[in-house]
């Protein structure tokens, strides 16, 4: 008779066991803030479609200190989300080969940052021009 009795360890709270996992869960957690922002935007859209008074009500609500604090937190979370997303580029994307040489992962991460800063500046300039 076999004396084997393999023991399977439980997975409860696995993400607390290693700082690497904690960081992972924090960056996954930023998805909650992205969802919250999408809902705020959608709410604004609905108010916009309900006419000028409703829209102005929404704009007022956006000016409340609570809303400003909420958006500051949101901004921090989404910037952090962007930061981790670019940091994972070397993991998630195929190696880029230029002139027969593998491009350094750090360069790709920096490229991501450049694109984000570019998108930010361009968006801001366009909105500034429209305003």
């Amino acid at each position: 008779m076999s004396k084997r009795r393999p023991y399977v360890r439980p997975m409860d709270g696995w993400w607390k066991k290693n700082p690497y996992y904690v960081e992972y869960m924090v960056h996954e957690g930023t998805a909650l803030f992205v969802a919250a922002y999408a809902i705020v935007l959608t709410f604004g859209l609905v108010r916009l479609s309900q006419g000028e008074a409703a829209w102005n009500g929404w704009l007022e609500a956006m000016k409340s200190p609570l809303s400003i604090i909420f958006h500051l937190v949101l901004l921090a979370a989404i910037v952090y989300h962007a930061f981790t997303w670019f940091k994972l580029f070397p993991l998630t994307t195929p190696p880029v080969v230029l002139n027969g040489k593998k491009v350094e992962p750090e360069l790709i991460v920096r490229g991501g940052w450049a694109a984000a800063i570019g998108a930010t500046v361009v968006s801001f300039v366009i909105v500034w021009g429209l305003a």
């Binding site: 290693n18 690497y20 992972y24 994972l88 993991l91 994307t93 195929p94």
Partner: peptide, 23 residues
């Protein structure tokens, strides 16, 4: 795979398995 990336971190031979999975 949810791109935790820790596999590539601990690999003693720098295989970068996480990259292979994601590719």
């Amino acid at each position: 795979c949810s791109a935790v990336g820790y596999c590539s971190e601990v690999c003693p031979k720098k295989v970068d398995p996480g990259n292979a999975v994601n590719i």
